[in-house]
């Protein structure tokens, strides 16, 4: 009996902890949701009460004044293109590094993987961005984001490549494929789950990033959503209703991407098995 009881207590305690943790994350989301629908006066206190009347026009105002349309497309461009580039290059690199385990390739692999842990040196990065004339340009920020995502992407894909039998490479060689055909026609289709995972994670990371555009994009027409929100907040900090609406609109796209892709994220992170 004592064992059953203590099990029940642990169970209940676990649930309490989970509920508490959920509250911590959900409270701000709730506050933003209700306040986005209030009038300016009502939202001034940023309280938890429900709005007395719905002010849906807040969203329209925000979209117009906050340059949300431009910044939305900027964000899609930066996150989408950089995630695609990072996934493609990481997959190519991971395939070669995993298949040819020479001492040099192992060294290269670990060098690339270090990028996950090591902090960015903004001083040298700025110098390089200036030197290459990539600072304050869209291609510049895309290349920068792709580069930042590559280490983790290689790490994810590398382990997955191992699970694809080498005999498939041999079979492709005998069927007349060169290295690139082998990769694009045989290996890449089998990597789909992990490639989708990599793409989504990298997309989300870039979408949520705030620092890079702050440093490397000066002109407001190049800003992604995160920076636009920040700027909007600076201008309208007395209008909490508008700020809340702005934050909500920024969250929605990334939420959609996450929900659409979460099935792949899980399967790509856990399973590595491709059995013929």
């Amino acid at each position: 009996m004592a064992v059953v009881k203590s099990k029940k207590v642990t169970f209940a305690a676990g649930h309490l902890a989970a509920i508490f943790a959920s509250l911590i994350t959900l409270t701000p989301v709730y506050l933003v949701c209700v306040n986005a629908l209030k009038s300016e006066a009502e939202s001034a206190a940023m309280g938890p009460g429900l709005p007395s009347e719905l002010h849906l026009e807040n969203f329209v105002i925000v979209i117009e004044k906050g340059k949300l349309v431009t910044s939305f497309f900027n964000s899609v461009l930066y996150a989408g293109v950089s995630a695609a580039l990072a996934t493609l290059f990481a997959a190519l690199a991971a395939f070669v590094l995993s298949r040819h385990r020479s001492r040099l390739n192992r060294a290269i692999y670990f060098f690339l993987i270090m990028g996950i842990a090591l902090p960015i040196n903004f001083f040298t990065l700025t110098k390089i961005m200036q030197l290459t004339h990539l600072i304050n340009t869209k291609p510049g920020i895309i290349i920068l984001y792709a580069t930042l995502q590559i280490p983790f992407a290689i790490f994810l894909i590398y382990g997955f490549v191992e699970s694809i039998p080498r005999e498939l490479d041999d079979a492709a060689t005998i069927d007349g494929c060169g290295p690139f055909q082998t990769f694009f026609r045989v290996i890449m289709p089998l990597l789909t789950p992990v490639l989708v995972t990599t793409f989504i994670l990298s997309f989300l990371n870039t979408w949520n990033d705030f620092i890079m555009p702050l440093y490397y994009l000066n002109s407001s027409e190049n800003w992604p959503m995160t920076l636009a929100v920040y700027n909007f907040f600076g201008q309208y900090k007395q209008s909490w209703n508008l700020v809340s609406a702005d934050i909500l609109l920024t969250i929605v796209p990334v939420l959609i991407v996450y929900l659409a892709g979460q099935r792949f994220i899980l399967s790509g992170m856990t399973s590595g098995a491709v059995k013929g």
Binding site: P165, E167, A171, A172, I174, L190, K275, G276
Partner: peptide, 13 residues
């Protein structure tokens, strides 16, 4: 030449 492998090595996709 053509080769038949131990694990069949069929393209799963």
């Amino acid at each position: 030449i053509a080769m038949v492998f131990q694990s069949y090595a069929l393209y799963p996709h």
